[in-house]
Design a protein around this nucleic acid. Structure first.
Lengths: 111, 111
DNA sequence: AATTAAACCTTGCATAACAAGTTAAATTGT
DNA sequence: ACAATTTAACTTGTTATGCAAGGTTTAATT
C-alpha cells in the first residue's frame, strides 16, 4: 500500500461530512460544490465520488435535488438543498468528527 | 446509512496511522496495542481489525513481529517493532493527517 | 482431567473512493 | 447550417478497509 492509496482510505466519510456542511450554508449544484472544495487539496473530491454521494444522500432523505433554469439562460442545473434529516445527521457527524480528531491527534502526537 | 456505519467509514486509514504512531514510541504486542488504544473511544480498534492490519504492515515491511517469552512466565507474545520504512511511511502519513484535519475542519467550521 | 482465559488469527460482508467511461444540452468555430 | 467542443450530470467496475463472528493454540486454574 502506497501513501496515495492510504489517502483514499483516510478520506472515506469525509466527503459526506464536507458536502452536508457546505449545503448547510446554502443550496448548491454539483459543479458548484466541486468548485467550492477544489481549494482543499487533502479532501480531493472528484465528480465520480460526488455524484454517487449526492444520490445516496437524496435517497436517504438528507438532501433534495431540484432542476432549475438559470436566470441568465443556458442549460438547467440541479440544485441540492439540505433537509431537516440532513441537518440532524450533520450535527451527529460533526460531534463524531470533533471527538475523532481529538483522539487521533492525541495518539499521533502532532503538536 | 446510519451514523454507526458512517463512523466505520471515517475510521478507515486511522488504525494504520495510530498503530505506527504508537509503535514509534516502543515495541508492543497486539494485546498491548489494543489496551493502549482502548481509552480512545472514537478510534474503536478491535482485534479483528488490528491483526489483519499488523499482518499487512509486516508483509509490507513497515513493522516486524517477533515471538518472545515473557519474563514472568505465561504464554509467548508477539512483539511488533516499527522499521525504517515504517518510520518513513509514518512521517508521510502524519503530514497528510495534519493537512486533512485542517482542510476538513475549515469546511466543517467547528470552532 | 477438564475448563477457562489469553493472545493470536481467519473469513465473509458491506461500503466508499476512484478512474474511466457515458449522455444530453448548449455553445463555439468554420 | 453543420460539426466540434464544452458543460453538467451521471454510471460502472475495481479495490481496500473496518467489522462481526467465528476459530486455534498455549498456559493457568479448578
Amino acid at each position: 500500500m502506497d501513501i496515495e492509496s492510504w489517502k483514499s482510505q483516510l478520506r472515506k466519510g469525509a466527503a459526506e461530512l464536507a458536502v452536508l456542511s457546505i449545503l448547510k450554508g446554502r443550496p448548491m449544484s454539483g459543479i458548484a460544490l466541486l468548485d467550492h472544495v477544489k481549494a482543499y487539496s487533502e479532501i480531493g473530491l472528484s465528480d465520480g465520488t460526488l455524484y454517487p454521494l449526492l444520490k445516496r444522500l437524496d435517497r436517504d432523505g438528507r438532501v433534495t435535488g431540484n432542476w432549475q433554469l438559470p436566470d441568465a439562460g443556458g442549460r438547467p442545473t440541479k440544485t441540492y438543498t439540505i433537509t431537516k434529516d440532513g441537518e440532524d445527521a450533520l450535527r451527529a457527524m460533526r460531534a463524531t468528527w470533533v471527538g475523532f480528531r481529538k483522539d487521533l491527534s492525541d495518539i499521533v502526537g502532532d503538536e
